[in-house]
């Protein structure tokens, strides 16, 4: 199957942007107050649980 060279060419750029986003998010998370961090942790926990809840 033919694959355009564009996607392959852009892959390092996408990976770098993604890594930069994760890094920026990680750094910003240290600046959140305790309450916001707790809410964020709760939201992430809920998102992780969602797919399993459908099958109970």
């Amino acid at each position: 199957m033919y694959r355009g060279s564009g996607t392959r060419g852009r892959a390092p750029l996408l990976a770098t942007t993604l890594a930069a986003g994760i890094f920026v998010g990680f750094v910003l998370s240290f600046r959140l107050d305790e309450e916001t961090r707790r809410r964020l942790r709760k939201t992430l926990f809920e998102l992780r649980e969602l797919p399993f809840r459908v099958f109970v």
């Binding site: 809920e46 649980e49 969602l50 809840r53 459908v54 109970v56």
Partner: peptide, 16 residues
């Protein structure tokens, strides 16, 4: 809460 409503609550017909 929103993540415990609708399909995310236990099903009427158990899937287990």
């Amino acid at each position: 809460s929103l993540t415990n409503l609708g399909p995310f609550r236990p099903n009427y017909r158990s899937r287990l």
